[in-house]
Design a binder for these strands. Sequence first.
DNA 1: GTCTATATTTGGATAGAC
DNA 2: GTCTATCCAAATATAGAC
Lengths: 195, 195
Amino acid sequence: MARKQGSHSDITGPRVQDTALRLIARHGYAAVSMRQIAAEVGVQAGALYNYTPDKQTLLFDLMRAHMQEVLDALAAADLRGDPPARLDGFTRFHIRFHLPRPDQVFVSYMELRNLAPENFAILESMRRDYETALEDILRDGVAAGVFAVPDTRIATMAIIAMLTGLSHWYREGGRLGMDAIEEIYCNLVQKSVRR
Amino acid sequence: MARKQGSHSDITGPRVQDTALRLIARHGYAAVSMRQIAAEVGVQAGALYNYTPDKQTLLFDLMRAHMQEVLDALAAADLRGDPPARLDGFTRFHIRFHLPRPDQVFVSYMELRNLAPENFAILESMRRDYETALEDILRDGVAAGVFAVPDTRIATMAIIAMLTGLSHWYREGGRLGMDAIEEIYCNLVQKSVRR
DNA sequence: GTCTATATTTGGATAGAC
DNA sequence: GTCTATCCAAATATAGAC
């Protein structure tokens, strides 16, 4: 076996994405070379350009795909109930979606500054949509008199920072499983905004 | 004026640090070249090596200096009182210290993965000391029965993530001043751990 | 679709003159 | 302490054979 040449677009395409994501998450976009990605995929550097016009687009496609998945999954979650129930739902959704995807979270958070301006604007807009989903819950809760937050925008940013931070230190197989983590964060988040 | 050569170590030294910090915060360590730093300082690239043995040490010195300042300032703050008062004190200390230093926060947070392993270990240890200061407050509060947190370690990480996240989006001259921000975060933090 | 080979640029770091 | 000049390695991206 072990062909040295031939067509493998079905296998190579996803492998390029997966490898790039993992390497960029570990070392950073600027520190990872196309040669390094190619070597881990098992092709020569030139072959990568069958799958992306350039390195910048490769990064952007990774980040946009992740944010699109987040937004689609959130829409599919279809949170219902009173504001506290929806807040619990959002918290659990965030944790369940993001904890199994630490590399995507890391890249989407750390590499924003390496995006070309037009690409940055697109990602920022998608990120803002996600934040708005949480802020809507908080605002409804305040209107209903069940939440007491001095400023819904700041509470939104604070809660998302708390949740995103979790992805930066949580490692599978640690002291606590995902279910236990979920309970603890629901408790912290819920209390921080309740009357 | 405008000498093209001569000794300027008093001026150039700090300028190298300041410029490197600003550029790395904006573009990332791997994306910033020594030539770029030199150009902004106003010297040739070779001259930088009078101030640092190499690029890695330049990064490490920036990060270590920042963490040392944090720890020194926290020790000087000398928080006293019951656990809720100390928690408020910690929250206000964090905000007052970090909000005026967005570049340091950004670099210390984002560039950990670009440190050589031995340098990483040193920074991690200093960071852990800072986290422990908060966890001690939470543990005392739980022991005294004034705080109710399911897990002090996780609550510590959650609160620090919330506070650090603030530095990532807060910009001077925005809708809210630092004092207003302080009040809002004290409220969120305090409620999240109270019985 | 992949390979080999390469054009071109840019990077960190050093040597020696002033 | 800074400059000029340079070494050497590594980067992105492309061209053409298979």
